[in-house]
Deep mutational scan, measured.
Amino acid sequence: NKASVVANQLIPINTALTLIMMKAEVVTPMGIPAEEIPKLVGMQVNRAVPLGTTLMPDKVKNYE
């Protein structure tokens, strides 16, 4: 099972992601793969992401 990116804290809307905000966890359904964490640093979320929520591609601005 592959790990996904999960919010390590509440991430407010329009916040630029940092390493400390994210952790890798095996979750269902799968979100953004954990190996993409370095790519996500500096990207902004387009909505608030509660603690423990899986980061889905549609929650990150300009994620492809």
Rank of each mutant, 00 (worst) to 15 (best):
P12Q: 08
T18K: 10
M30W: 10
D58T: 06
N1D: 13
A48K: 09
A16D: 10
K2L: 12
P12K: 08
S4E: 01
V26D: 07
A24V: 08
L55V: 05
I32W: 03
Q9D: 05
E35P: 06
I37K: 00
T53E: 15
I11R: 00
G52P: 04
L10Q: 10
P29G: 05
G31M: 02
A48G: 06
L51P: 14
I11Q: 01
I37T: 03
R47L: 10
T18Q: 10
Y63H: 04
R47Y: 12
P50D: 09
V6M: 04
L19C: 12
T28L: 12
A24G: 10
K23I: 10
P12H: 07
M30A: 14
Q9S: 08
G52R: 01
P57Q: 04
T53K: 08
L10W: 12
K23D: 05
G52I: 05
L19H: 08
K39P: 03
M30H: 12
V49L: 10
M56Q: 09
K61T: 11
V27L: 03
P12D: 07
V60A: 02
L19Q: 08
P29S: 03
M43V: 04
T18D: 05
N14C: 14
P50M: 09
G31I: 02
E35Y: 13
E36K: 12
T15P: 02
N8V: 11
K59M: 15
I20P: 14
G31F: 02
N1Q: 14
P29V: 07
V6T: 06
V6L: 05
M30Y: 12
E36L: 11
T18G: 04
L17A: 00
M22Q: 00
L55W: 02
Y63A: 02
V41A: 02
K23Y: 08
T53A: 15
A48V: 12
V26L: 11
N46M: 11
T54Q: 02
L51E: 15
V6Q: 02
T54M: 03
P29C: 09
A3D: 03
I11S: 01
I20F: 12
I37L: 08
M56A: 06
K23N: 07
T15M: 08
S4K: 01
P29N: 05
M22A: 01
V6W: 04
Y63F: 07
L19W: 11
E25K: 14
T54G: 04
M30T: 11
E35A: 12
L51D: 10
P38H: 10
I13T: 11
T53P: 02
L17F: 06
N8T: 15
M56N: 05
A34R: 02
A24F: 06
G31A: 02
V45F: 00
M43L: 12
K2C: 15
P50S: 08
V60F: 06
K39I: 13
V6K: 02
L55F: 07
Q9P: 03
S4W: 03
E64C: 15
D58P: 00
G31V: 00
K23Q: 06
V60T: 01
L55S: 00
P12V: 07
I32G: 03
L19G: 06
N8L: 08
L51Y: 14
L10A: 12
P33A: 09
V41W: 00
N14Q: 04
T54E: 04
I37P: 03
P33S: 10
M30I: 11
T15R: 00
N14I: 06
A16H: 13
Q44V: 14
M30R: 13
A24K: 06
L17E: 01
D58S: 10
I11M: 05
V27Y: 02
L40I: 08
V6C: 07
E25A: 14
T15A: 10
I32V: 05
K39A: 11
G52M: 04
V60E: 04
P33W: 08
G42L: 04
N14V: 06
T15V: 10
E36T: 05
T53H: 13
K39R: 14
Q9M: 13
Y63K: 02
A7P: 03
P33V: 05
I20T: 12
K23S: 08
M22H: 00
T53S: 13
A34V: 05
G42E: 03
I37R: 01
N14H: 14
V6A: 02
P57N: 00
I32R: 06
V60Q: 02
L51Q: 15
M30K: 13
A48Y: 09
T18S: 10
N14E: 08
P50N: 07
I37M: 12
N1T: 14
L51S: 14
E35C: 15
K23P: 03
T28Q: 13
L19P: 08
I20K: 13
P33G: 07
V45N: 00
V5K: 00
A7Q: 02
M21E: 03
L19D: 06
I32M: 04
M56G: 07
T28W: 15
N8C: 12
A48D: 15
N8H: 06
V45Q: 00
T28S: 14
T28H: 14
A48T: 15
M56P: 02
P38T: 10
L17R: 00
I32N: 01
V49Q: 06
V26I: 13
N62H: 10
I32D: 02
M21C: 06
T15W: 08
A34F: 06
K59F: 15
N62W: 09
V26S: 07
P38Y: 10
A34M: 06
K61Y: 10
A3H: 10
G42A: 04
A24I: 07
A48H: 11
L51I: 13
P29Q: 06
V26M: 11
E25P: 02
I37N: 04
E64T: 14
P29D: 06
P12F: 08
T15K: 06
M21R: 00
T18P: 01
L10N: 15
N14F: 11
A3S: 09
A48M: 14
V5S: 02
T15C: 09
P57S: 06
E36A: 10
I11W: 03
E64L: 15
K2F: 12
T54R: 00
G42P: 02
V27G: 01
A16Q: 12
I11F: 03
T15I: 09
P29E: 06
T53Q: 14
Q44D: 06
L55R: 01
Q9A: 09
V60D: 01
V45T: 09
P50F: 09
S4G: 03
L51G: 10
I37V: 03
A24S: 12
M56W: 04
L19F: 11
P50I: 08
K61P: 04
T18L: 08
L10Y: 15
Q9C: 15
G31L: 05
Q9I: 12
E35D: 14
P33N: 08
V27N: 00
R47N: 11
A16K: 13
E64G: 14
M22K: 00
A16Y: 15
I20S: 13
K23G: 09
N62F: 11
A3C: 12
L40A: 01
Y63W: 13
A16I: 14
